[in-house]
């Protein structure tokens, strides 16, 4: 396979997989928490939180990337704290690419999980309570397993979004081969150079293959989970 792809193309594929997987896994727990809050919580500012979460979905990705650059850049208010206190630098690093992808995929993840939590019959949670389960155990043994199909769907959506993320990533962390050049950035670069067509086509095919594989994996997982659940 490495004969077929140039080392630079191969690096872009690997980097994209790492970035997308990191983005998906890192946003899972906060995504669950926010989805649960939006589905079940009753608090002041709920619609504000909802709007904030959905902002990356409706804003131009370049705007999101630029805001990330302002906030998380080395001189940005958050970036400076992270650098001074934890030695974490995000700008122009692959971790920054993962952050940009996570922010862009977050609304899709939260939406899918939130809908599946809202669809759960709360009477089942009441029943678990009368059997002695406290709120945390009810969530872990009833809410979470019943929301699993939605969680899987959200994860796949988030992963797919991260694989394809371009605008916010290139604005925030630029297009550095080996560090921040993900699949879409690499394809874009190849289309800008003479004789890059063949390489762009190879990466395009790989991109399609990864997307289809992710979709099939989610179908398979959903079916495995669905076997335990009543037919909806």
């Amino acid at each position: 396979m490495s004969d077929w792809l140039s080392p630079q193309e191969w690096t872009a594929v690997r980097l994209s997989l790492v970035v997308a997987t990191t983005a998906m896994l890192a946003s899972l727990l906060p995504g669950l928490a926010v989805a649960w809050l939006l589905a079940r919580g009753r608090f002041w500012g709920k619609s504000l939180l909802d709007a904030l979460i959905h902002l990356p979905l409706i804003m131009p990705p370049v705007v999101t990337g630029y805001l990330l650059l302002i906030g998380f850049g080395r001189r940005g208010p958050i970036g400076q704290v992270l650098d001074d206190w934890f030695g974490i630098v995000l700008s122009f690093r692959w971790t920054g690419a993962a952050l940009a992808c996570a922010v862009m995929g977050f609304p899709l993840l939260v939406r899918a999980i939130r809908l599946s939590i809202e669809a759960i019959d709360r009477k089942l949670e009441d029943a678990a309570g009368t059997l002695g389960a406290g709120p945390f155990w009810v969530f872990l043994t009833v809410t979470l397993p019943l929301a699993l199909p939605g969680i899987l769907a959200g994860m796949i959506l988030c992963f797919a979004k991260a694989m394809g993320e371009f605008g916010a990533t290139i604005t925030f962390v630029s297009n550095i081969p080996g560090e921040t050049q993900t699949l879409p950035s690499a394809i874009y670069t190849l289309t800008q150079v003479p004789d890059g067509d063949a390489g762009a086509m190879r990466l395009t095919l790989i991109s399609i293959a990864i997307s289809v594989a992710a979709l099939l994996a989610s179908e398979l997982l959903a079916r495995l989970v669905g076997r335990r659940l009543p037919v909806a």
């Binding site: 009477k123 089942l124 009441d126 009368t130 059997l131 335990r228 659940l229």
Partner: peptide, 13 residues
């Protein structure tokens, strides 16, 4: 306090 509901409310999973 145990509770048997009108609809059994068994956990489907």
């Amino acid at each position: 306090i145990g509770y048997v509901f009108q609809e059994a409310r068994l956990f489907p999973h």
